[in-house]
Each structure stands twice: as C-alpha cells, then as structure tokens.
C-alpha cells in the first residue's frame, strides 16, 4: 500500500487526571491493515482507541490520524471518517434503532434513505422501529455496525467486536472488517480472543502497563 499512514503515533503519552495511562507509544498503521491490539485489563487499550479516535489529546509526543494532528483543530474535521464501536453500545435506549441511525445520519450529513439498506446489511431489516432498549445487546451491536456502514469511515476502531454476537453476526462483522481493509481503510481491533483476531489481522501489537510491546 502506498501513501501516508492513516495513524502515526510517535512517543505519545496520555494522562487522565493524575494517572499516566499510556506512555511512549510508537505506532504506524497503513491503509489496508487490520491490526489486533491485545493487553490485560487496565492496560490502556480503550484509552488507546479513544486517543486514535481523536477523543483524547495526547499529553506527550506527536500523533497524526488521517492527516490531522491530534492536538490541532483539524481533528474535528476528520472525526466523521473514524468509526468506533466500544464494548458498551453508544446508542440511545429510548429511541428506536432507526431513530438512532437517523440521528447519526443527520449529524454526519448522510442521506437518511440509506438507513433501511444498512440495517438490512447487518441482518436487522425488520427492526427499524424496534426500541433500542428493548433490543438484545447483539442487536444493538449490529445497529452500531450499520451506523459505521452508513457513514463511510476510513478507520474503524473496534473494542471486543465479537462479544454478544451470534455466529452469523460474527461472520458478517468479519466480512465488514475485511471489506474495509480491502477498500483502503484500516481497522484496529481490541480483543482478548487472540486466535480469532490473529486469523483476520495483518499484524498485532500488545499493550502492557500503558506501553506498546
């Protein structure tokens, strides 16, 4: 793959309050890569994802994501090209799955006519009017994948993407991950399931005590 890396971190550290969560992180991710990110509980994996998602500013070092410096106002402009699915769903339980997607589409400036199509793509064709809070965790996760399909992302950050998903959904998600990489994007996957991730990842890195090894 040619071109500038999608993610380039150099000596990056992150502090939250008085705690140094990440230190001296050097990481480069190019277009087309699927990277597995492993580590024990509390190693800083979720913080690393939020850093790359431009949601946290680094306290030390220099970071570039999709060409934007992590400390410059440019990062607001590239945010809608970054998708993130955490282990707790980022959807509103009082709203239907369709309303959740409509809200995201309106923020992102995406046509809401794509909603039925993306819901169908994740196996939720008949669930557009289903209240998110009354849907299973697996359905909520599928709806989040539908959101990532709807907003065309260059970088996908997934935290335990297989949890709460049935076998069909896992196949579906892995297909989406591989398609994103084939289209020139990149995917970072946090997981404890090394075997499953190693089967689809182009490489993997390990976080230990806030440092990449």
């Amino acid at each position: 793959m040619s071109g500038a890396p999608l993610v380039e971190l150099s000596g990056v550290g992150v502090r939250i309050g008085s705690s140094q969560i990440l230190r001296d992180i050097d990481l480069q991710i190019d277009a087309g890569e699927i990277v597995g990110l492993f580590g024990a509980n509390g190693a800083g994996k979720t913080t690393a994802l939020r850093l790359i998602a431009t949601l946290i500013r680094p306290a030390q070092g220099r970071g570039m994501v999709l060409g934007a410096d992590l400390t410059s106002p440019d990062r607001y402009e590239i945010r809608r090209r970054i998708g993130m699915i955490g282990h707790v769903p980022g959807i509103y339980p009082e709203m239907t799955l369709g309303e959740n997607l409509r809200y995201s589409a309106r923020l992102a400036g995406v046509a809401t006519t794509k909603i039925p199509e993306v819901l169908a793509a994740v196996g939720l064709a008949g669930a557009i009017d289903r209240t998110a809070g009354a849907s299973s965790h697996g359905m909520q996760r599928r709806a989040e994948f539908a959101r990532e399909l709807m907003i065309d992302r260059s970088l996908l950050l997934l935290d335990e993407p297989h949890s709460a998903l049935d076998r069909d959904a896992v196949d579906l998600v892995e297909g989406l991950i591989e398609r994103k990489a084939d289209e020139g994007g990149a995917v970072i996957i946090v997981s404890h399931d090394r075997d499953r991730i190693n089967a689809i990842a182009s490489r993997s890195v390990e976080l230990t005590g806030g440092t990449l090894t």
Binding site: R50, A53, L55, Y76, R79, R80, I82, G83, M84, G86, V88, P89, G90, I91, Y92, Y103, S104, L107, A108, G109, E144, R147, I151
Partner: peptide, 15 residues
Amino acid sequence: ETLPQQDASSLAGLD
C-alpha cells in the same frame, strides 16, 4: 449522556 453515546455523537461529526 453516557461516554459511549457522547463518543458516537462526536464521531458522527457533532460540533
């Protein structure tokens, strides 16, 4: 709003 909800809005481009 929970942190994941705020993050999802931010990454959908919410100013």
